[in-house]
């Protein structure tokens, strides 16, 4: 294998790229940079419309801050378990890598579960997707975030399964790190949403 193009992303590939950095990791960071503009757009839409509640209840009457604080805390802790998975993978400790990946996925699922519960509760209080501009933009923003978390859970579990069956092509530690970057980004987006949407009064 004499050439850079084909080596990309492979363990030994780090040393043949121009910058010495992994192609996959550069791609992931570019993608996350791009995601900033996606979530920025959704957050701005919500900020613009959060006061337009029509006849329905507004954010201040609706949000259950203690519940959301707990689920925010859960997601934050999943970042810790993720970073432990990344460190285990760097140590080539497969058993702990899998353990922390699954733990992260569980915490993520818990967060999604809380979100589903929250959406159901809102719906029962009479706030549907189409009730008002506030509700549409709220459900769109948090829904997009929830979908991102769900995809993250899917990737975490898939990665754990692939490690078990030894089906990870290329650098295992890097694969964990890439999923980790994605996961932390989703967490960081929630940090912003939690403050701007839930905590700052409209």
């Amino acid at each position: 294998m004499a050439d850079t193009a084909v080596h990309a992303g492979h363990e030994s590939g780090h040393h043949v790229t121009t910058t010495g950095l992994s192609n996959n990791k550069l791609a992931m960071w570019l993608f996350l940079g791009s995601e900033c503009l996606l979530f920025g757009g959704l957050i701005s839409t919500y900020m613009l419309y959060r006061g337009r509640t029509g006849d329905g209840p507004g954010p201040n009457q609706l949000f259950d801050i203690p519940l959301t604080s707990i689920s925010s805390f859960v997601l934050l802790m999943s970042s810790l378990t993720m970073v432990l998975a990344v460190n285990s993978a760097k140590r080539k400790d497969d058993a702990n890598t899998k353990l922390w990946l699954v733990a992260t996925a569980l915490l993520g699922s818990l967060f999604v579960g809380a979100q589903v519960y929250e959406f159901t509760a809102f719906y029962q209080e009479g706030i549907g997707f189409t009730t008002s501009l506030f509700s549409s933009s709220f459900f769109t923003l948090t829904g997009f975030h929830g979908v991102h978390v769900s995809i993250g859970v899917l990737m975490l579990l898939a990665l754990a399964a692939m490690i078990t069956r030894n089906r990870v092509a290329g650098d295992k530690a890097e694969a964990v790190e890439l999923v980790g970057l994605y996961w932390h980004f989703v967490d960081v987006v929630w940090v912003v949403i939690f403050t701007l949407v839930y905590l700052i009064p409209a």
Partner: peptide, 30 residues
């Protein structure tokens, strides 16, 4: 989170540059 958990503080500066470009543009335009 981005500096420590996502290793930007320890990693090559190019990664920071790429991400901050997106972050900066997002904050600016919105």
């Amino acid at each position: 989170i981005i500096l420590v958990f996502m290793h930007l503080k320890f990693d090559n500066r190019l990664f920071s540059l790429l991400f901050y470009m997106g972050l900066f543009l997002a904050i600016l335009v919105y």
